[in-house]
């Protein structure tokens, strides 16, 4: 049986993590590699690095970061934040990333999903989508949630999978930061709509929220940042709990 995945997310700017991570014994709290190694040792199943660097030489900094991570981390990882072309995706994958995640760039140029999946296979193309419920409708938002579109979340997810997305990372902006749980109703709807893996993001506050998103949201993995960074939930404790709730969870 495939196990449910627990995925910490790290925001990177100019090679350093943006939100500090509150680990005991961490020498340099801004070093993403050190943080990533701790998560990997604690039993994280996968890592996501979102590079929010805004320099002209972005691709070069991304390649440097990916190479550093790949040298030291022995679990799969996804990078995103600056993938706007096939060349960007190629650089990241060639340097050792297992998957790239594409967000706004795919909305602006949906064909990018076709091109990337034809070239690299859909297994390494993750569609990240941020959405918010407005007048009963889930609408896709761009540039880190700052720009609203009129695109329906479910239509977009379906189209993206038809075009070649091999995994969906859905962040509910209504839930993100609230620590009140994931958007399970919308997640379950996505899970029934497409047959690629689905990662829930936004809203993790307790261990029970992870259980609920696997149970009711039908998610294959759950992503969180602050509850892990600030030590509010320990990954080993979370995994023990989920195991006791009879989910397939990787312990060894």
């Amino acid at each position: 049986m495939l196990t449910k995945r627990i995925i910490p997310c790290l925001d990177i700017k100019n090679g350093r993590t943006v939100k500090g991570v509150n680990f005991i014994d961490l020498i340099d709290a801004g070093d993403p590699i050190e943080q990533a190694k701790i998560y990997a040792d604690q039993g994280a199943d996968e890592l996501v690095f979102l590079d929010i660097t805004a320099t002209v030489d972005k691709r070069k900094t991304l390649v440097e970061l990916v190479t550093k991570i790949a040298k030291q981390i022995d679990i799969p990882f996804t990078v995103g934040g600056g993938i706007t072309s096939v060349e960007d995706a190629y650089s990241a994958l060639q340097s050792g990333a297992d998957k790239v995640c594409i967000n706004s760039a795919a909305v602006r140029n949906p064909n990018l999903l076709n091109l990337c999946s034809e070239k690299f296979g859909n297994q390494c193309i993750v569609l990240a989508v941020d959405a918010k419920q407005i007048n009963q409708q889930w609408l896709v938002h761009l540039v880190g949630g700052r720009k609203q579109t009129e695109i329906d979340l479910f239509d977009w997810v379906k189209e993206s999978v038809e075009r070649g997305a091999g995994e969906i990372l859905f962040t509910s902006m209504d839930h993100d930061g609230t620590k009140n749980g994931f958007a399970n109703e919308a997640l379950a709807k996505i899970s029934n709509l497409v047959d690629v893996p689905l990662i829930a993001s936004g809203g993790a506050g307790t261990k029970e929220h992870f259980r609920d998103t696997f149970l009711h949201g039908k998610a294959d993995g759950a992503l969180a940042a602050s509850v892990f960074h600030f030590g509010e939930i320990g990954i080993p404790q979370l995994k023990d709990y989920l195991k006791s709730e009879n989910f397939e969870i990787r312990i060894n």
């Binding site: 495939l2 199943d45 893996p197 993995g221």
Partner: peptide, 11 residues
């Protein structure tokens, strides 16, 4: 009757 690709950790 499972999602394809088979992606993730398995025993």
């Amino acid at each position: 009757d499972e999602k394809v690709p088979h992606m993730g950790w398995n025993y």
